[in-house]
Write a protein that binds this DNA or RNA. Structure first.
Length: 542
RNA sequence: GGGCGCGUAGCUCAGUUGGAUAGAGCGUUGGCCUCCGGAGCCAGAGGUCGUGGGUUCGAAUCCCGCCGCGCCCUCCA
């Protein structure tokens, strides 16, 4: 957290509101850290950058426990050379904190909801949902670790037209199974899982086909919903994703939330009748066009329930921040939902929407379609069974979420170094192996050590990375970008592997061994903490 | 036609919120096992950051115009 320390120091000397940068300099010879603070602050202070830089350099250099040298360079950059003793102290900080190293109070206990996946319960989860699950779950872990109070939620669209179609799909397949010749409509759910559900329904309800059409469709709908939802839960559990709340859209109506929300919008003066439908004046808040909330046939739109749902999140359930993880194909929804929040006098800044781009499955050759209705898709379960949980989760988090992802199945299955998940896990397992050896050599792991013996360039590289971890956690949480964890872990693993080939943890030199084992323990801890935030296991052996 | 996202090494992608000479993996070329796990490491080659302007001390990053790709533009979800 050296960067944070430097920031705090500089903020004491500079006027408030000056946005300056503290980060690694472009070249190693320029020190450990560089800042443009003098450049940025010179203007507001009415001073020459170079002169201000000299003054700041003198003040910082007084902190002998932090810096061994502070230089002014170019137009007024400050180059900071951090005292080795500061870096060496990080081992103790990591070992003391253990699994809590990197935990932050950034969130200050604020309540945040992460709503993710929320796929319609009309079929099994496919790989696109898997990406949303990996991102949402990792983000929830990250926010929790960063000091937020987190609720993970799945919103179930368990009513409306698509539920009727689901019911009809099952009903038609059941009649088909009974030998009846039927024609199956294009816009119905065509997947084989529908036939399975129909078969099971016929077993459990032998009288099913004797029911009236209306009754049968209703029975089939409820039956299919329960079946599919159970399967979705199972898939997510097997993926290591656990929800705090499964939120039913149907309940939202039962409790009158939708009517209440529409009433609130009406009171605020943003609803009007046109062509027999009820419209929300979204254009008043920057959306492209006004949106229907009640259709001419009296049915509320999906948008209407969404307004009510989000109104409840903020106004009744008291979330300070709501993160929605959506498929990128829903991006058109964002402006209208923000508009509705604004109309309800809710600060739309409190809603953050992550749009997850498409996943293309690459196996030997090319991609596969992912249309639920057409029934052609690779399910999350199939991918999990083929590739394994850790590799799937890690791979989904190797890309920022607003970029499309080509999921290379062959690569994810590979157990070679080209597969990034093994690269990181191997670093952890390798250290575990070192400790098994250390024990044989008579090290308990609890000995005192002299951190000043950690002085090679490879030591310092690891120490700096360990020091950076808490900051990286905060930045990733603030930016809602769990993929930063992935890249950090790859860096740390690389530094460790490099160290491993150049130095020995266990040697004749007992004091040196003790210091290096302490470092190894700290690295292992941070690898484990980071992997845990991704929901990926940190194996002792592979 | 409009909106959103994306164009960075042969391929797949990072790029610390505007900083100094743009990075990694794979692939490729050449090296490293008496040794804690070689599932590893080191070195080399490889670039008009799609393109043309603009903003300023300074742009891959911000603004505008083009080009290409994807997604979305329903009283579907």
């Amino acid at each position: 957290m050296i960067v944070k320390r430097v920031r705090e120091l500089l903020e004491e000397y500079l006027p408030e509101g000056v946005r300056f940068q503290v980060g690694p300099p472009p070249r190693e010879e320029l020190g450990d850290l560089a800042t443009n603070a003098a450049l940025v602050a010179a203007g507001p202070l009415g001073r020459r950058p170079r002169e201000l830089a000299e003054e700041l350099a003198r003040k910082l250099a007084e902190k002998r426990e932090l810096f061994r040298k502070v230089e002014v360079a170019g137009p007024g950059f400050l180059n900071l050379f951090v005292a080795p003793s500061y870096w060496q102290g990080v081992v103790e900080r990591v070992l003391l904190a253990g699994a809590d190293y990197g935990r932050s109070t950034l969130g200050a206990g604020r309540k945040v909801q992460v709503e993710f996946v929320s796929a319609n319960p009309t079929g099994p989860l496919h790989i696109g949902h898997g990406r949303g699950a990996a991102v949402g779950d990792s983000l929830a872990r990250l926010l929790h670790f960063a000091g937020y109070q987190v609720v993970r939620e799945y919103y179930i669209n368990d009513r409306g037209r698509q539920m009727e179609i689901l019911g009809r799909s099952v009903w038609l397949r059941a009649r088909e199974l009974a030998g009846e010749g039927i024609s199956f409509p294009e816009d119905h759910y065509r997947g084989d899982y529908i036939i399975e559900i129909a078969r099971k329904l016929l077993r459990e309800r032998p009288d099913f086909l004797e029911l009236s059409e209306e009754e049968a469709v209703e029975v089939a709908r409820d039956f299919a919903l329960a079946e599919i939802l159970a399967e979705i839960r199972r898939d997510l559990e097997d993926f290591g994703v656990h929800y705090d709340v499964w939120y039913s859209e149907k309940d939202l109506y039962k409790r009158g939330e939708v009517a209440e929300a529409l009433e609130a919008l009406k009171k605020a003066g943003y609803l009007y009748q046109k062509d027999g439908a009820l419209w929300f004046q979204a254009t008043a808040f920057g959306d492209e066009k006004d949106r229907v909330v009640l259709r001419a046939n009296g049915e509320p739109t999906y948008f209407a329930s969404d307004i009510a749902y989000h109104r409840e999140k903020f106004l009744k359930r008291g979330f300070d921040l709501v993160v929605d993880v959506w498929g990128a194909d829903h991006h058109g929804y964002v402006p209208r939902l923000r508009a509705a929040l604004a109309a309800l006098q809710i600060d739309a800044q409190r809603l953050r929407v992550l749009l997850i781009q498409m996943v293309n499955l690459l196996e030997g050759g090319q991609l596969k379609s992912m249309s639920t209705r057409a029934g052609e898709f690779v399910t999350l379960r199939e991918l999990l069974e083929e590739v394994g949980r850790d590799a799937v989760r890690f791979t989904f988090l190797t890309r920022k979420c607003d970029a499309p992802l080509d999921f290379d199945v062959d690569l994810a299955k590979s157990q070679k170094s080209e597969n990034p998940v093994y690269y990181v896990q191997y670093a952890h397992a390798r250290l575990a192996s070192v400790f098994r050896k250390a024990e044989e050599a008579g090290f308990s792991g609890e000995e005192n050590y002299d951190p000043s013996l950690l002085e090679t360039p490879e030591d310092l590289r690891l120490l700096k990375l360990l020091d950076f971890f808490p900051q990286m956690v905060e930045e990733a949480a603030e930016a809602l970008e769990p993929h930063r964890l992935t890249y950090y872990l790859l860096d740390l693993a690389e530094a460790l592997h490099d160290y491993y080939t150049k130095h020995r943890f266990i040697s004749e030199d007992r004091a040196l061994s003790q210091a290096r084992l302490a470092l190894a323990k700290a690295v292992k801890q941070v690898l484990a903490n980071g992997l845990n935030l991704l929901g990926v296991s940190a194996p002792e052996r592979m």
